[in-house]
Amino acid sequence: MPRIQVRRWAPLAVALVLFPRVVLAHTEKGAAAGFTAGFQHPLSGWDHILAMVAVGLWGAQLGAPAIWILPVTFPMMMAFGGFLGLVGVPLPGVEIGIALSAIVLGVAVLLEWKPKLALAMTMVAIFAIFHGYAHGSELAPGTSALAYSLGFVVATGCLHGIGILIGLLHGRPAGRAVVRFAGAGVGAAGAFFLWRALSS
């Protein structure tokens, strides 16, 4: 009985402890604004949104352990990309890399491509660096860098989660087609992003 009680109430207890962040938000304006700005950043462009959702879709298609390894790899390497941007390491072709990520991930989902885990991880890692480089180093004046970064990482994780949830439809006959269709959409959008990147 006590074990059941812990399982039931532990998440609520943790949430309540962390809740004062909301209550006291007015005392940490920089932090609150930073988190909001960071959270909104990955949602500010369809190239990022689609690629990150596609990581989740692909992970779900590949199954365990890729379903969680890919979404773990992406934020870590995205952060590394952001780190490179912050310390001023030049990275050419960022927009092209982002567009290619949408194309490759979308096509992988469409074709239900199942490479070895190491290859899938490497691909996701490389793409993540471009995404992090593009958006990890932009900070509005007066906001908290740490809060901004946290919002940025959490939003990215949420996008992967959405992709995984959609990708779990893969286990159903009709859902499988839906997931592949979503992959086709991501790939097509990636082609548009590439065209835009090359023509600008």
């Binding site: 780190f83 900070l139 860098a145 970064s149 946290l150 940025f152 994780g157």
Partner: peptide, 13 residues
């Protein structure tokens, strides 16, 4: 992994 990613970004900052 999210916290570690946050640490990497914070290191950059």
């Amino acid at each position: 992994s999210w916290i570690a990613a946050l640490g990497i970004l914070a290191l950059g900052w």
